[in-house]
Simulated assay, not measured.
Amino acid sequence: MNKNKKAVVLSSGGLDSTTVLAMVREKAYDIFSLSFSYGQRHDFELKAAQTIAAAMQVKKHLITRIDLSPIGGSALTDAIPVPKSRNPSQMTDEIPVTYVPARNTIFLSYALAWAEVLGAWDIFIGVNAVDYSGYPDCRPEYIQAFETMANLATKAAVEGKGRFCIHTPLIDMSKAQIIQAGLSLGVDYGLTHSCYDPDADGLACGHCDACVLRKNGFAAAGVPDPTIYTP
C-alpha cells in the first residue's frame, strides 16, 4: 500500500470506529479522521475521539460542528429517554429512538466533501449489520447507494480523476470478532466511549443498547471489558 495514499475515516470515539482506524493504519494510509459535534447528549465521545486520534497518530483530526438538536426526533438529540436493559432481540424489533434521522447520510456527505478536497478516494465507516441496533443507515444496500451517489455528485469523479469507495470493514462482523480484530492490531479499548447516556463524570451507564452490545461483545470474545460502568 502506498504510504501517501489518503483515507478519510469517520471516528465517533467508540469501539467500532476505533477498530476501523486501526485497520486503516495497518494498511499504511495517511489518515484524516472526522468527528462531529452534532448536538448529541454529551461530548465524552468527542474527547475520546481526540485521544484516539493522537494515539493512532492520524495526519489530521477534524471535529465538525452540526447542530441536529433543533431537528430532534432522537433520544440522542432530543428530550427522549434512552432505552435501557433491553436484550438484543428487543433492540431489533423496531428502529429504536436512538436512531438519529439521516445521521450517517449527513456524516458521509461531510466525509465525501473533505475527501474530495484532500484528493482521498477512500472513505471508511464502522457500520455493522450484525450486532447493531436496527439502524437503516448501517445496511450494505445503503452504503452501496451512497457510494453510487458520491461518484455521480462530485466534480473529481465526474472529471474522471478517480472513483470514491466507501469501505465498511466491519459490516459482516460480530461485536466479538470486531474486538478480537482490534486487539490483534493493538487497540486500547479503554480509550473508547460507547455509552449513550453516561453520568456527569462520563462513566458508562451499563444498561443502554450501546453498553449492552459492548458488554456482550467482550464476554463473547472472552476478554475483559476495560469500561468503567456506574455502580
Rank of each mutant, 00 (worst) to 15 (best):
221 A>E: 09
66 I>Q: 13
61 H>A: 05
95 I>P: 02
118 L>E: 06
50 Q>S: 11
164 F>R: 03
123 I>M: 07
214 R>D: 00
166 I>C: 05
199 D>S: 02
11 S>L: 14
224 P>H: 13
136 P>E: 08
111 A>L: 03
82 V>N: 09
42 H>T: 05
168 T>I: 11
162 G>F: 12
180 Q>G: 02
14 G>N: 04
99 Y>F: 02
96 P>A: 00
160 G>Y: 10
39 G>F: 15
96 P>C: 00
65 R>H: 13
14 G>V: 05
37 S>F: 13
101 P>L: 14
7 A>E: 00
118 L>A: 11
195 C>D: 03
119 G>I: 10
17 S>N: 05
23 M>I: 13
126 G>N: 08
151 N>H: 09
225 D>G: 04
187 V>R: 14
24 V>S: 01
103 R>S: 04
79 A>V: 15
160 G>L: 08
85 S>C: 06
147 E>H: 06
149 M>P: 00
84 K>T: 13
161 K>H: 14
7 A>D: 00
1 M>S: 08
29 Y>E: 04
116 E>A: 09
135 Y>D: 01
174 S>N: 03
189 Y>L: 10
26 E>K: 15
82 V>I: 15
89 S>D: 03
227 T>C: 10
91 M>W: 12
172 D>P: 06
196 Y>V: 06
178 I>T: 12
188 D>Y: 12
224 P>T: 08
71 I>N: 00
163 R>D: 06
229 Y>E: 03
24 V>E: 01
30 D>L: 07
153 A>C: 10
173 M>G: 01
88 P>V: 08
208 C>Q: 09
113 A>M: 05
119 G>W: 14
70 P>G: 01
53 A>I: 15
